[in-house]
Structures are given as structure tokens and as C-alpha cells.
Amino acid sequence: MVCSIVPPYILRRLAAQGSPRFSAVARAAREALLHVGAVHAARTSAPTAPAGIRQLEPSPVNRSVFDAKSGESLPGQVVRKEGDAATGDPAVDEAYDGLGHTHSLYADAFGRNSIDGLGMPLKATVHFGRMYDNAFWDGQQMVFGDGDGEVFERFTRSLSVIGHELAHGVTQFSAGLAYRNQAGAINESVSDVFGALVEQYFRKQTAAEASWLIGEGLFTPQVEGSALRSMKAPGTAYDDDVLGKDPQPDSMDSYVRTRSDNGGVHINSGIPNRAFCLVAQTLGGNAWDAPGQIWYETLTGGSLSTATTFTAFAKATAATAKELFGEESAEHDAVRGAWETVKVKL
């Protein structure tokens, strides 16, 4: 067990350091603060979810990419292992690079040791199935289809999609959010948030510079659309004669009640997606810093119920922001303001 001798008010000041020169100490202070919070919570109530796993020194990435050769047996034939040269197959090399960029975000920004927090090797299979229009995390590894060529290109083209799917793994190993109704929409949103952060961190884009699009480049040129989803402006990612219009709401005023899509998990995720984007835009700078830290600690800190609601999640992010940065901080204000804008009650 790690114990802290530094008082919480000093940790808060350190955690709030915005200068890159102090980023390591700020991160360490936030880690310590969260630990203090977790110990306090453990003393006062029984945990509702597994506590987050923290290791200060993540192990190096260990990747393997496999080729399913248009079949559906996993993992397939290994075609590139860690340290091997590029193969020339775009799907293989994009998957390899995407796994690496995702590992880097979690290691560098959040001190997380791979997807499970314990340094698990990262595996991906490409060329899965015939004209397969999807990418998914099967609980142990990534799987990518080549797309049908008419609506979708190969799914390795989008780094935010790779980050999205691997974030489902992080959720699986931390908050374990259910995949239905509001908890499912939070599960989906968290994957979009960290998918976007993987892409922004790789491109070194600030919140103002980022596109906030999920799945940019996946649609073929025949489709009238820029991406699968827009975190900045939910509901505007595509509007196509064949596909129809992006159905995401941008606030609780247009929340969609439906039985399909597990209760609209990919639809209502637009609401918490926009909340995160608003936090990042309000604070400025890099979204993987304070905004990402608040969302990451909320997801992995052990306070979320697996059946969490939008309101419970919003309250948890505000509590994390208060714990990390203080009640009067810009970060706490930004989180509260964002949820107010999307009309989720705190």
C-alpha cells in the first residue's frame, strides 16, 4: 500500500500545476490525492466497484498483430510482433501503431500500465471476416474488419476508433459499467472520450485544435458525412440519403427513449460526450491534462456503480474535480458548467 505524508491541501496545489515543467509532480500529486480519497471512502463506506489499480511505472508496450485472412477464427496468424519492422499491409501497420499510441496515452497521461492496469500485452486481429463493417474489443483483444468498400473503409484507418475499443477494455477492468440505458451510454461515451484523447495526444492537438470527431475517415467518399459521431456538435456527423442523419442528441432536452441499441447507448452518449468537450474547451490547453485526468479518475477510482446514471456520473466527475483541484478551482467550475449546459442535473 502507498501512504502519503503530504497533506491534501498541498497535494491539491501541486495537482493544479499547469506548467509542463511540473506535469510529473502534478500527476503524482493527483495520484496521491486520489489515494487519500479512496482510503477515506473505504473507511466510511463499503466499495461498490473494484478500486482502481495504479502503478507508477507502466511497463513498455508489448504488441502482436494477427491476420484472420477474411475468416473469423481468433486470433489468426501472427504477422507483426513488438519491435518488428512495418509489413507494408496498411491494416497491420495501422493496428500496430494504434495500439502503441493508445498505450502511450494511458502510460504518459494517467500512469496506467496497459489496458488492465497490470501490463497486459496488446493483441489485435485484422482482416476479420468478409466485408466486415465493424471493430470490437472481445474482452481480451482488438478485432478489425476491412469494411464493405461502399459505406465503410477498413476500420484501422481511425485512431479514435482504435482508442474507443481499447477504452472498453479499460472500462471492463475498472468501473465495469453495464451496457444498457444510461450506464451503457456512459460506457460508450467514456470510450469516445478516451478514443478522442488517444488521437489528440498522438497529434499533439489542443482542445481548440482538435476535431472532436470519432471515426473520421471511416466513411467512403460516397457517404455524406465526416465521421461516426461529433463530440463537439452531436447530431451533425453525417446526413446522408442512404444512411439517414446522425441521431445523437446534444442535451437532455432531446434525450432519446428507445429499446433499440440497448436503450440508445450509441445515441444518448452524445450528451456526456459534449459535456467532456465543453470542459476541455472551457479550460483550454490539452484535453488529456485536467479534463482527461478528471474523467480517468472518475472511471477508475472505484466510486461508480455499474448501473450509474447520467446524474450520478456527473456528480462523480464534479466530486473528482473538487478532490483533485479544489472546490473553487476553474476545473470544478468547468465540470459543473458543462453538465449544466447539457442539462444533466447535478
Partner: peptide
């Protein structure tokens, strides 16, 4: 499968 307690009959989000 929509009656599965956690909404994931095969334990895999984003599947069809």
C-alpha cells in the same frame, strides 16, 4: 438477448 442483466449477452460491447 436484450433481457441479459448487463445488456451484453456475449460480454462484448459494439458487437452486432
Amino acid at each position: 438477448p436484450r433481457q441479459a442483466p448487463d445488456g451484453q449477452p456475449d460480454g462484448q460491447p459494439d458487437r452486432f
